[in-house]
Structures are given as structure tokens and as C-alpha cells.
Simulated assay, not measured.
Amino acid sequence: MPRDSANAIATEDLLKAYRLGYFPMARSREDASVVWVLPDERGVIPLDAAHVPKKLARFLKTEPFEIRINSAFTDVMMACAEATKARPDTWINDAIIEAYCELHFQGRAHSVECWRDGKLMGGLYGVVMGAAFCGESMFSRETNASKVAMLHLMARLRIGGFHFIDAQFFNEHLVQFGLIAMDDADYQLILEKALTAEADFFAAAPDQLSATRVLQSITQTS
């Protein structure tokens, strides 16, 4: 259920849209306007049923990356907006980058980043709405970097009392983490509950959790 919008996105309007289940997307990286989207089918990761794939758990135990939180939010967004061979265009335009960077400045949007030798190798970002984390996008410049960021995110959210990750659309790539499909009516019910609950994104360590703590926090393996 898309609706067009003018170029600039006010953060008040963005947060209001999230409370109703909408989120913005551009038709292309260079498109100046956005479309407000309310999917009929939602992709959601319930955090009480999250999974850690066994192969990825073994990789995580090698501590392959330094994990940082919010140290390069804009860089993460710009990387998510980059064209790749697999994704020649993206839905993240300048208006979206500006609006979410402002949300980050306000303490409402966060990034989880994977670093190696001082270089940003992968990460993700999203918006906190009560006890819901609205995931926006992720990227990898090295194998498994975005997946490791996802594991650290899930552990952090579990520790902080969050209910679920809103992945927006159902995506087969995220099923390995426990993603389920949910119709909009059911999503609105869990969103309403999450909006009235309290959660703390920083209840865990300020930056990197140990691999053991991550895996213990996400109790199920597959």
C-alpha cells in the first residue's frame, strides 16, 4: 500500500509513520521522492524464537570482527545505499539518508558495525520504536559480515528486552535467523504492544559482546 511523498522527510512524520506500520522507500537511489509502504505481508523475527545457524555460530566463535555500535552510522547508511553487482540500484536516496541520520542524532536509530584492521567490513542499521527494532538495511564487504552484525543485534535486543525485529518484507535470506511471515493485521497487534513496552538498546555492553554472550543470549540453534 504505497503513497508518494515530497522530497524532505521530517523525523516527526517518520516516527508517526512507524507507529502506523509504514516506512519510506525510494524507487531508486537517484529518485528524489519516497513512497510510504505498508506491506500486506510482513517479515518479522520474534526474538523469543530467534535462531543461530550452527555454521555461523562456529564462525562467530572465531571472533572474526571487531564490533562497534553507532561509531559510523552515516557510513553504514552510505554503504547500504551503494550499488553492487547483485544489487545495481537501491531504495535508499538522499532524503532517507538525511532523515535517518537525524534520527540517529536524536538517539532513535542505531548501527551495528563489523570492523577489521580499521576498515568497515559490514553492518546494519535500524530504528528503535518501544520494544520493536525496525531493521532497515544491511551490507557486507566480506563474507558473513552482515550476518555477524545480525547475531550481535539479536543478542543486544534480547538482553535489552525487545520483542521483535521488523524486517519489513519476508526474505528467504533471513529465515535462518527465525524470520516468519505475518499479515498486516497481526503485525499491527504486536506493534501496538511493543510501542507501549520499554526496552534498552544499551542494556548490553556499549560495544562488542563476546561470542559466548551472543550465543547464550540467542538460545536456539539450528
Rank of each mutant, 00 (worst) to 15 (best):
Arg42Thr: 08
Leu60Asn: 01
Lys55Asn: 10
Ile190Trp: 09
Ser146Glu: 02
Val37Ala: 07
Glu172Pro: 13
Asp75Gln: 14
Ala83Gly: 05
Lys147Asn: 08
Gly126Thr: 09
Asn7Arg: 11
Leu56Pro: 05
Ala211His: 02
Ala8Pro: 11
Ala50Val: 05
Ile218Pro: 01
Leu120Trp: 02
Gln220Phe: 09
Leu151Gln: 03
Ala50Cys: 06
Pro24Ile: 06
Val34Pro: 01
Ala149Ile: 05
Arg68Met: 04
Phe201Gln: 04
Leu195Met: 15
Val52Gly: 01
Pro46Gly: 07
Val214Arg: 03
Asp117Ile: 00
Lys54Glu: 09
Ile190Lys: 09
Ala185His: 12
Leu209His: 00
Met182Glu: 12
Asn7Met: 06
Met154Ile: 14
His163Pro: 00
Leu103Ser: 12
Ala50Leu: 05
Arg158Lys: 15
Asp31Gln: 14
Ser222Pro: 10
Glu102Val: 03
Met182Phe: 08
Asp40Met: 13
Leu189Glu: 15
Ala149Gln: 04
Gly160Leu: 11
Arg213Trp: 00
Asp40Tyr: 10
Tyr125Cys: 09
His110Thr: 02
Leu56Asp: 03
Met78Phe: 03
His110Gln: 09
Ile159Thr: 07
Arg68Gln: 09
Asp13Asn: 13
Pro53Arg: 04
Tyr18Ile: 11
Phe73Gly: 05
Gln216Asp: 13
His110Asn: 08
Ala167Gly: 13
Pro88Thr: 12
Lys55Tyr: 00
Phe139Gln: 05
Met1Asn: 13
Leu157Asp: 07
Ala95Ser: 15
Phe164Asp: 06
Ala132Gly: 02
Pro88Val: 09
Ala197Gly: 04
Gln208Glu: 14
Trp36Gly: 02
Arg108His: 14
Asp183Tyr: 01
Arg116Lys: 14
Ala50Met: 05
Ala6Lys: 12
Arg42Tyr: 11
Met25Ala: 11
Ile190Tyr: 08
Phe164Leu: 13
Ile159Glu: 07
His173Lys: 02
Ala32Ile: 08
Asp94Tyr: 03
Leu103Val: 12
Leu174Gly: 03
Leu38Thr: 06
Asn144Val: 00
Met1Phe: 14
Gly135Gln: 07
Tyr125His: 07
Thr90Leu: 06
Ile97Cys: 10
Gln168Phe: 11
Ala72Glu: 05
Ala72Gln: 10
Glu82Gln: 14
Ala149Lys: 05
Asp40Glu: 15
Ala197Leu: 11
Arg27Pro: 00
Leu189Gly: 00
Asp183Met: 02
Lys55Asp: 07
Met182Ser: 10
Ala167His: 01
Arg27Val: 15
Gly126Cys: 09
Pro206His: 08
Leu153Tyr: 10
Gln106Cys: 04
Ile96Phe: 14
Asp166Phe: 09
Gly135Leu: 10
Asp40Leu: 15
Leu179Asn: 03
Tyr187Trp: 10
Met182Arg: 13
Thr143Gly: 01
Asn171Met: 12
Trp115Leu: 03
Lys54His: 09
Glu142Ser: 02
Ala32Cys: 07
Thr221Trp: 00
Gln220Pro: 00
Gln176Val: 09
Gly178Ala: 05
Ala95Pro: 10
Arg19Tyr: 04
Arg3Trp: 14
Ala109Thr: 06
Pro24His: 06
Pro88Cys: 02
Asp207Arg: 03
Pro24Arg: 10
Gly135Ile: 06
Leu124Asp: 01
Tyr18Val: 11
Ala57Asn: 02
Lys16Pro: 00
Ala99Ser: 14
Arg19Thr: 14
Met78Asp: 10
